[in-house]
């Protein structure tokens, strides 16, 4: 991948809390104080996640499981549109 494409891809990354409801995303990076906890529950790099609702606690599905996630946890998950 050339550097321009890489930049474009990085620019399109957003956190799960910013992501739009009803869309599917791929997890690009998990980073932050709770990243280990998040990876263990299923939020690993490359996994697909679907966001269901916004809110203080947002709902999403990852690997077929529904999870409620507080905003500060969702902020630690960076996603790109799948």
């Amino acid at each position: 991948m050339n550097s321009l494409a890489l930049d474009l891809k990085r620019d399109s990354a957003l956190t799960l809390s910013q992501a739009a409801v009803g869309c599917e995303f791929q997890i690009k990076q998990v980073e932050g104080s709770a990243c280990r906890q998040l990876r263990e529950i299923g939020f690993c790099e490359q996994m697909r996640v679907k966001k269901i609702t916004h809110g203080r606690n947002m709902l999403c599905t990852v690997c077929g499981t529904r999870l409620a996630l507080s905003k500060d946890l969702a902020d630690q998950i960076q996603v790109v549109p799948a």
Binding site: S33, Q37, I41, R66, L67, A68, S70, L73
Partner: peptide
Amino acid sequence: EAPQFMLELPP
């Protein structure tokens, strides 16, 4: 402590 909430919703 920083609040962190994560809950599984079983089918």
